[in-house]
Design a protein around this nucleic acid. Sequence first.
DNA 1: TAACAGGCAGTTTTT
DNA 2: CTGCCTGTTA
Length: 807
Amino acid sequence: MRDPFESHAPDHDPLLKDLTAPQREAVLLTEGPLLVLAAAGSGKTRVITRRIAHLIRMGVPAWSILALTFTNKAAGEMRQRVTTLLGEGRHTRGLTVSTFHALCARLLRKYADIANLPGLKPDFAIYDTSDQTSLLKRVIADMSLSTSNWPPRSVLSAISNAKNEMLTAEAFAARATDFYSRSISRIYTAYEKALRNAGAVDFDDLLLLTATMLERSREVRDDCHRRWQYLLIDEYQDTNRAQFKIASLLVGLPEPLPGEDQDSRGPNVCVVGDPDQAIYGWRGADISNILDFEQNYPAARVVTLGENFRSTAPILAAADTLIRNNQRRKHKDLFTSTPGGEKPLVVTARDEQHEAVLVTDFLRRTRQESESPLGWRDMAVFYRTNSLSRVMEDALRSAGIPYTIARGTSFFEREEVRNALAYLRVVANPADDVSLARIINTPSRGIGDTSVERVQTLASTSGTPLLEAMRSASEIADLSARARSSIASFVAMIDGWTGAGTFMGSQISSSLSDLVERVIRESGLEAHYLALSKAGKSEADLERPENLSELVSSARQFENEFDPDSDPAFFPGADAARDGRLAPIPPLLAMLRAYLESIALVADADAVDPEQGSVTLMTLHAAKGLEFKAVAIIGLEEGLLPHSRAQTSDAELEEERRLFFVGITRAMRHLQISSSRYRTIRGIPERTIQSRFIEELPREHVRFSDQADLMADADPFGDDAFVDELPTSRHGAGQRTGTPATLRQSDPAQGRAAGTLTAGSLVRHPQFGEGKVLSVTGGMGARATVQFKSVGTKTLVLQYARLSRIG
DNA sequence: TAACAGGCAGTTTTT
DNA sequence: CTGCCTGTTA
């Protein structure tokens, strides 16, 4: 057995010399199960990459190492850093650094033929959320159910949850007892059937089917065991049940395989994560996976990386004190060896506009005062929900501060790109009905809904894919002549691109980018979007032709970089024989499929990459994994953080707290946390309650500053001008434009009802309807507690609430 | 077949 | 107040 501790003197070893003692341990404990609890900012990526490099240097063949991540970005970064350490070439050859989903896709394609998974063909397409939604809509409609009773979104999330829990349609049916879940179960079953008919799987299937395959097939499992001896999983706190299963099966757990010489220490699985940063429970991640790792692997060793190299002591203290309020966690002592630093500032604003101004002030001030000058790119603003970004944008714009929002539809999600891709997907997979339905009349070519309906009926009665049914469109009696000829030329167009499925012949494109270009031009998409752009209606329309050319470039780039040998499922030497089993597919088709898959599994084309010189705005979720010199977190209010939809259980509340924790720990040197006393939610200004998390911050390490009452000078109309007065509800135009600003304007008529409102008065609210006043408070920010007939008791600020007295 | 009005709901997001 | 979906109308 190799003994790394003897063979290398740590202080002279380039892989170890700049590591702390626990970091070294995490690198050197290569054998047996290992849990690395990596606190925020503890140098996690550095440790992982060193560990991989160390393994290889110790003589472990690179191809026997498998590192799994959640995002392509993380995988790419890890791969990059390992190559930097070891250099390109034979040392790193065959090293697999992949996302869970990409690995699963490869394994499923490779083993589909021997895995005996019903309906799964090796050339399956991967459906994303919008594909799933349109398929599901059709399924629901075909079952004569209404999409208003069965909203695709929620049905889909029910199905997704089931798959994350490893519940197949049959398993789900078995435990469905009540009417609701039995209906969901029927839809689930039909949806699965439709997916398989379309030759497709969804994202969740990639995991579920892989887990099932590994579970059922000894042969597949053995193949994987033979190849991968060292498994490493990043962000382990975010794994769901299916991923846990896959990991276990890949390393040979739960039961050691009989007759196999199992190391008494257990498999070489190293998981890295931080329970305090688990913020994806709502999409199936199960924090127990990491919390129970030591139970699942009794021989596991645990290394805690608690030293923080990112934040100042007061910021760390704030994060630490906050997160100690969570029960379900593994405590880590967070510490930094660099003392000093500015205390985080907790400010209270009057309303969201004011809050946004306080943020721009903070950013400007920090930029100037900081001893080493900060650029806008070193700063970020975080919020719980995307809707909070708008006010922030307005304020930044009028302050002349450049900003970028880390969100927005990614390149591959834009309408025109999705349409072009739908064409390509039909070319790659003629059975892909969802894509076909999308493009059959895009741009419009005289095949209307009724015509599509009729062909679809033929398709489902004869059990053939839609495109096949279209070929026999002439047999459909009640199809108009026009539709008939349109359909014929549509089919001819597709056949022209594919050489009727052969991908052979002189007319057929020989390169991927040629094909993409041809499809965009001949489909009429190019002309369509060019015309739209000329019309120049919206900004988005102007960019569309450009995006289509961009797609051609992306295909060209893929073509140049495509390496058919870099397949993580490729097993060197061991199973060359099996590869002969599959009929050879035309090279262009192979490349097209690889291209489409690379797109399907890469969501964030323009990911969170702070543009040069601009402040980054993003949700707290998107902030994970990043760091900024200065951070502002806004909207620390009950209902927002913790979010109103996440207060039903302790588990949810703790996740909200972790979200705040993640936000705080992104900040390196400057941090401002803000709440606002009033906030306009869906057009209605409301009094807010400060987030309970503010109370959980350590008084001695943060500075509090209530700015809400100091605004009188800045806002001549605001604040105490009319606090005692109740604006009467104004009917007609006045009410529609009744923003807080206009209500606050000096209008004597407005104050007439003031004082007339007392406990017992009957009132009407434009949103909540009729209610009875229970109590009234006067003075600053006068408010009334009202018992509404329909929505219960609410406390309303008289200054803002458009209450009218009715008795 | 497309454009438009009206109704309704309204976290977080990767693959 | 928004955006999305549905159903209706020219």
